[in-house]
Design a protein around this nucleic acid. Structure first.
Lengths: 195, 195
DNA sequence: CTAAAAAAGCGTAACAGCTCAACTTTCTAA
DNA sequence: TTAGAAAGTTGAGCTGTTACGCTTTTTTAG
């Protein structure tokens, strides 16, 4: 699975160098005050190469992770305990995920601050996060025995995902998140035929 | 109120010429294939002037209207009949608004198609629309007797506004919109202490 | 009526992010 | 060993957007 030729190692190294340089410079001087040329320079690489590694553009340099998040979301719906509603299962997942990350990655707070204070990055993060909307909606629909394109399921998926970004502005984000998921839970069980 | 000096008339004319040229060209050849220089040319105006009229950039050329939408939203909450919940009042407003626009503006369908098929424009429309989130949230909070920064109210406002953009992808958008507002209504009355 | 303030517009030059085309190096595998 | 894929390089160039300094038109005051 993990092909470990010299080639791929070098490629990964370059990519990492770029992401590291970018994050460091962004944290030092702010996202908007660091040009793409400078990042390439710092990683000792040409601008063209930078964009070969990050075709989504400058913003993508900051988000060098995020695999299997989608699997986690879908799993939270499918394998939830029987006494837990879909919205509550998602709520729990988000909480666990967040605390795990805080424990795992030492510079996670810095990273969060950077994203929160940079509109371009907030937007990008949201877009990436919402990519999972379809997969999540499908899982929910399947679970509820509804057609896979049911607008209610899509809406629930969408709102659940948006909740995290909605809450960022708030002081006491955890309380706000709980409030939002109360709303979603109550709406979901109230407007969906109990199977 | 409407100061009608020669100055302002000319200014408005130029602005209109720009917006018209832009919409025409975009519809003819697609948003991404029309440069800003070309639009300025078509309106017989310099690029600098174009950006003086539309400081928000290329996307703003397409959205030359939208005043008092916010007032309508806030009004729908404040002056709703007593037997209508907040979500239902908003739902009704959105429906009325849409049908009014279709009746009023002959090229509204073209406009919609353009926005729907152009990611940059979809994003921009969403941003503009969500600008009203705060005002709406405040109105809702006031109505419900909750603190003006209550996260539940903010969430309801946000979700209600997002509903319109969520529904765009769907076939039968009206049905989808109804479904979503059912969810919101049921969630709102279920998770909010009845005053 | 006229001078001056205010505002619209102009053209050039520049910078940002990003892409393209053509070429060189490095590694893989037949 | 050699052909070819993939990584990287260079350099030019496109697009949206802004700053700067200048001219012209309109408004307002004296």
């Amino acid at each position: 699975m993990t092909e470990t030729g010299r080639r791929e190692r070098k490629k990964a190294a370059t990519r990492q160098a770029l992401a590291d340089a970018a994050l460091r410079l962004f944290l030092e001087r702010g996202y908007d005050d660091v040009g793409v040329r400078e990042i390439a320079d710092a990683a000792d690489v040409s601008v063209t190469t930078l964009f070969k590694h990050f075709p989504d553009g400058k913003e993508a340099l900051v988000f060098d992770q995020d695999l299997d998040r989608e699997a986690a979301l879908v799993g939270a719906v499918r394998e939830r305990p029987t006494d837990l509603s879909v919205p509550r299962a998602l709520h729990r997942l988000l909480l666990d995920d967040r605390s795990r990350r805080v424990r795992t990655d030492p510079r996670f707070p810095d990273f969060l601050r950077l994203v929160d204070t940079t509109p371009a990055l907030r937007e990008y993060a949201r877009r990436m996060w919402l990519r999972h909307e379809n997969a999540l909606a499908t899982a929910i629909a399947e679970d509820a025995g509804l057609p896979s394109d049911d607008p209610g399921c899509r809406a629930l998926a969408h709102f659940a995902l948006e909740a995290t970004t909605l809450v960022r502005a708030d002081r006491d984000p955890e309380a706000a998140l709980a409030r939002i998921f109360d709303l979603l839970d109550s709406g979901w069980s109230g407007s969906t035929p109990t199977d």
